[in-house]
Design a protein around this nucleic acid. Structure first.
Lengths: 152, 152
DNA sequence: CTTCATGTAACATCATAAGTGGCATGAAGC
DNA sequence: GCTTCATGCCACTTATGATGTTACATGAAG
C-alpha cells in the first residue's frame, strides 16, 4: 500500500512558510518539496478553509500563514486534510453476520481504535510552534545553515 | 488507500479451521470468505511455513491447524503474513537533508512508532485460543447457531 | 491589457491488495 | 497405471487511492 505523506508534506510546507516574511508561491514550494505546484495547492486547500493559511492571487501573491502557530496542533492540520485514513489495515467487513468474524472484528477493532486514538492524542499535543522551535534549535545546533538549500 | 484485510481474513480462517475436525479445502474456505481459493492459499502460505497450519494434497486433503491455539498470538499471525504495513501514513522522505523535514520526521515518526508499538503489543496479548473462546461465548449467547451459515 | 499566481477539473502514473486462469505436482481411490 | 482431487505457484487482470501533470478559467498587480 502506498503510504500517504500529505501530513508530513503539509507540515513541511507550514514550517517553511513560518520562516518567510512575504507570500511564497506554489511554484517555489513545489521546488522545495520536489513536486508539482498543483499538488501544493491541493494540499493547502483544506488548510485555507480553516484559516491556517491564506492565499493571494496575482503579482506578489502566494501563500502566507493565517494563524498563530501556537494555536494549531498537528491534530488540527490532520483534520484540515480531511482526516485521511491512519491505519493501513482494517476489518474485512463491518457488521458481519458471521459470529467468527464478529469476534475477530471485536479483537482487532479495539486495537485499531486504540492505535488511532493514540495517534490523534499525540497529534493534539504538538503545536506548530513547538515544531518551529525544534527547527530553530536544530539550526543552531548545526550552525545557522540556510534553509531550503539542503533539499536535494 | 486501500485497506489491507489479510490479518482480519486469516484470523477468520483459523477460527473456522478450529471448529472443523478434518481438513478443509481452499475451495470451501473461499466460499465462506466469499473470495477465490488462490487468495486463501496465498494468505495461508506464510502460516504454513511457521507450522501454524498444515496443508495436504489430494483426496481428503485441505487445511488443518498445526499448533496449539493457546500458543499463537495475533502478533505471530501478523508476522507470518510478512509484517505488512500497519500505518497508512508515513514520512515523506527518510533521512532528509532539510532541517525542517528532520524536525517534522522526528515529531511524526515518534508518534508513528508509538502507534505501531501499541498495535504489536496488543496483538501479542491476544492468543487464538482467547479468540476462539470468544466465538464460543458468542455462540452460546445467541443460541447455538451453526457457523458458516450466516456468511451471506 | 499583459503578466503572474491561484482554483479547479480532467487525465495520467504508480503502487498494492485482491481476484482469476492456467498448469505442474503430488496424494487418494479406482 | 490412471483418473480425480487438492495444493503450489506463476502471470495477468482489476480496483483503489495517492501522486503527478496538463489545461484553462479567474482575479490581482503592474
Amino acid at each position: 500500500m502506498k503510504r500517504d505523506s500529505r501530513l508530513s508534506g503539509v507540515l513541511h510546507l507550514l514550517l517553511h512558510l513560518a520562516q518567510q516574511d512575504g507570500p511564497v508561491t506554489s511554484d517555489v514550494l513545489a521546488q522545495v518539496m520536489d513536486t508539482n505546484p498543483v499538488v501544493i495547492r491541493r494540499i493547502l486547500a483544506g488548510l485555507r478553509e480553516r484559516g491556517y493559511v491564506r492565499s493571494e492571487k496575482g503579482h506578489g501573491g502566494g501563500w502566507t500563514l493565517g494563524s498563530d502557530l501556537a494555536k494549531v496542533t498537528l491534530r488540527d492540520v490532520y483534520l484540515a486534510l480531511g482526516s485521511p485514513t491512519l491505519l493501513a489495515m482494517g476489518n474485512r467487513t463491518e457488521a458481519p453476520g458471521c459470529l467468527v468474524e464478529q469476534a475477530v472484528n471485536a479483537a482487532l477493532g479495539s486495537s485499531f481504535d486504540a492505535a488511532e486514538a493514540l495517534l490523534l492524542a499525540r497529534f493534539g499535543e504538538v503545536t506548530l510552534a513547538r515544531l518551529h522551535a525544534d527547527v530553530v534549535r536544530r539550526m543552531k545546533a548545526g550552525g545557522v545553515r540556510q534553509l531550503g538549500k539542503a533539499h536535494r
